[in-house]
Design a protein around this nucleic acid. Sequence first.
DNA 1: TGCCAGGTATAGG
DNA 2: CCTATACATGGC
Length: 278
Amino acid sequence: MKSSDKIHIELKGGIDLDKTERSGQCFRWIPDGEGFLIPAFGMLARVTESAGGIDLEVISSSKKKTSASDISEIWAKYFDALLDYSKIRNMPDKKDKFLTEAAKTGEGIRIIYQEPFETLITFIISQRKSIPAIKTSVERICETVGRRIPGTDVYDFPTPDELMKLSADELSACGLGYRAPYIHECAENFARGVLDLEYLNTLDDESLINTLMSLKGVGVKVANCTALFGYHRLDLFPIDVWIQRALETHYNGKFPLAKYHPYNGIMQQYIFAYRGKL
DNA sequence: TGCCAGGTATAGG
DNA sequence: CCTATACATGGC
């Protein structure tokens, strides 16, 4: 398992890895010196900021042969490389001081195109949990399933089939509380083919949200986060307690979605990252 | 130590 | 459609 060479990936509009990680969309990045170790797609990648983008090195991969160009393509999609975030962060109406400031402070935040199943499960876990507690539960699940990325001490996120096999007791030991049956049932639905992750991607935003909400434990907020972060539906605007507070304080309860189509989800992320500075 | 956490299901109006 | 309430557990 030898490490690949470093690959440079240009990200239009740049990236700030710390801000992106702290913006509460991904829960498994591991701080590593200047950058992060990121487990995804059966790989463990070491990522650092570099000249308008990132340098990426695949430390280990469970796949037999992945060419450098394939690796580059996979991770470019993950980091949303082609969308120019410098344009998007300048979208806020200058009269909207709050959003303008949030977007300015959020310079470097990108919407990460995560794997849908991991996104769904992590956001089911997220309900009524703090971000540190979410991370703890997610890691415990990965460790309990126990599939290591070869040659590392980092565990892959389970497939639906793997996750379904965890007993109620094993799930409870991950600190899931009342969410344990939600997680089990969700994994079972995908493992047995009642729902299909790729099929969901063919649906339009509204149908996708409605289908996700047919799962027990998935309400409107988790469905929107899954669609935004797991299916890269950038126009969706998940409303959690922090966003709701901002809406009440600055928007009379309703965000001007028409102004920021098709990037409302990115505005939402700037506001979320700006939470606490209301 | 007690409060709160990137909500949801459920019952009732 | 709306509102009120219970909910398991960890982190601070």
